[in-house]
Design a protein around this nucleic acid. Structure first.
Lengths: 360, 360
DNA sequence: CTCGGGTATCGAATCGATTCGACTCGCTAC
DNA sequence: GTAGCGAGTCGAATCGATTCGATACCCGAG
């Protein structure tokens, strides 16, 4: 050994995790060479590489420590997906799952992995602020989490917002929520409906239920829900709205009951998601209303929900998986230093059996 | 400034990301003090902290870089969940989602975040090997991914296997799959059933469908599926089995049709998951068989699947969310250096309306 | 008046790799 | 005969923080 005796030599210490330096020493090469042998970047003689790998095997070395590599290279290979809801709630929504699917697929192919973050009351530790990530995808996040996002922005982490309010330095994936809903509302109007109610997605972080008053509307910063509502209001400016606590069948059920109790004159309900629409149909059944003759129901999403209903929902189909893919690709492009253009998707009205002309 | 002019001073360079050192310099304190000011560990005078934070604001510094912190402290705050399936498939399974829910809840409270990894053909980069994580939870992983897991083991990353084959240095969360299924089979036997078939979970990584032959069985290293099958075989040693390509309703449907075509004499079907059982019921309906009189169907999981069927499934209820929580807690305990004991959960037979004595 | 003890701060070592520039060979081409 | 080149290797700087031990200071107790 040429190492001076003054240095601490962890030589035969079996408990400590071996380092690249230890492997290099054992193989009789420098750390730089050993690094090259592992990464494959740069020229290394075949038998040198062999010796290094052999030494690694002998020392039970499992390859370079990702932490150190990440510090040096500035890349962690991790892309975060930030959601507002608790994971439990998020996974209940088939739209979220479908989108994650698109994201994961695209990221996986590029060799990135996916960190799931929920924007939970900004904990002192463990949140957005101190997870290392190369980029972040924000799924429908309101402005509430601005401070945390600002930190990422400061760190020059590329930010992709999916159906999120516009924001300095953030790329966006958008959907024509407003236009889609207007198209849907026009469809109802053409059928002859004049009294139409809306069941909306949550309008605040607390997932409060109830009638969507003008004051509440003024205070709300929910993005997607407001856009979809605005679309309906372009056709039915005074349509009453009931806010659900989540995109869930039960919530649609509850909201529909509330809405129909307060507004028995309604002949159609526009639900801001397919799950909500399904709940509304259930509620109609219970009230003895026939869908679509007594009550038309319109959804949004184009979720393929098999067997949950005898109806084929009239709904606005959005390319949800593609949306996920697009978001992921934008992150990858930003990381590659390529220019990134915002992406806009459009939804399409799919006619089903849940809308028809109002009776009489 | 007291900094010698020979050092490169990134002073007014607005493009480079500011470092803690830069902030410290600007605040007129040492890097150590600045670090303390941010982390809160150690005594710092109030006005010193103020000055540091002010300097950070001025320099647009977003807090310590997680990468560096992670290298130094040896902790990344990330716990990985490794699944075999593609995310798309995994999320379709309500059991996986429920378990992730328990995991996420427990980890979130402890300030950890959740890295989703799928064991995809061991890509050169982006897989298990080079994501930094403090611990890994392996959800029902077969031995196929041993090499990758071995690396983690070498790195002394705590490993928790949920329904995974036993493995050196891995903690386990187990379920009484075999005993549960035996109990279910005994229930059928007590009702008088003598000809019983099984629909199994996937038995290989390729998700191959088809009759589960003895050769295949010998070659398979699926863990949960084999255990559950073994439980049934303790009562019905010769029960024919049909392998499904996933825990999905459609797969249960397909498998049941195949099974009943080959074995019309069957009076009961044991499905290895509730979704498969639901599919089997659908298939029975189509074949004009009445459940439970013509065909009894037994599930496993105790998934709460509302509205998908008019039947209440007879099934083995497992504490799935608790399983997730337990796994997460084990990881946290291991990280805290506490002793970790394996955890065993038990399932319980819940009688529904899908099993009865065979006709005649 | 001095000593003990707590508070605030700093310097320097350290975490474990990657990477750039320099250096040494052996060979070819002019 | 030597300039030029490419392959292979090494040394040293660097990434950006945390943390340990030392130091300086102030205050109260003895």
């Amino acid at each position: 050994m040429t190492t001076p005796a003054t240095r601490t030599i962890p030589a035969a210490d079996e408990t400590a995790r071996p380092t690249l330096a230890a492997v290099a020493a054992r193989a009789g090469v420098s750390a730089s060479t050993a690094s090259l042998a592992f990464s494959g970047a740069g020229p290394v003689a075949d038998d040198t590489r062999e010796r290094v790998l052999a030494a690694a095997r002998e020392l039970n070395y499992g390859g370079p420590d990702p932490r150190a590599r990440s510090l040096r290279t500035g890349r962690s290979g991790i892309i975060a997906v930030v959601m507002e809801d608790r994971i439990r709630d998020a996974f209940r929504d088939p739209m979220v799952v479908a989108m994650l699917d698109g994201i994961a697929d695209e990221l996986g192919q590029a060799g990135y992995s996916l960190l799931l973050l929920t924007d939970s009351d900004d904990r002192p530790v463990g949140g957005l602020r101190d997870a290392s990530m190369d980029a972040a995808l924000l799924l429908g996040c309101s402005t509430d989490l601005d401070p945390a996002v600002a930190v990422l922005s400061q760190r020059q982490v590329p930010l992709i917002g999916v159906e999120a309010r516009e924001r300095e330095g953030m790329h966006r994936v958008e959907l024509d929520n407003r236009e889609g809903m207007r198209t849907g509302a026009e469809h109802l109007h053409a059928l002859g409906h004049r009294r139409v109610g809306v069941i909306t997605l949550p309008m605040d972080r607390a997932h409060t239920r109830g009638p969507f008053t003008r004051e509440w509307e003024a205070a709300s910063d929910a993005y997607t829900g407001l856009e979809r509502l605005a679309g309906v209001r372009e056709v039915y400016p005074d349509a009453p709205a009931e806010v659900a606590a989540g995109s869930l069948i039960d919530e649609g059920h509850r909201a529909a009951l509330a809405l129909l109790r307060r507004h028995p004159e309604l002949t159609a309900i526009v639900a801001q998601s397919d799950l909500l629409a399904l709940g509304a149909i259930q509620a109609a059944d219970e009230l003895g209303l026939t869908v679509p003759d007594d009550l038309s129901v319109l959804g949004f999403d184009g979720a393929r929900i098999d067997g949950l209903s005898i109806h084929r929902l009239t709904t606005l189909v959005q390319p949800i998986v593609e949306k996920g893919r697009a978001a992921a690709r934008m992150a990858l492009a930003a990381l590659a230093g390529e220019p990134v253009a915002d992406v806009f998707f459009t939804s399409e009205l799919r006619l089903g059996t849940t809308t028809a002309a109002p009776r009489s």
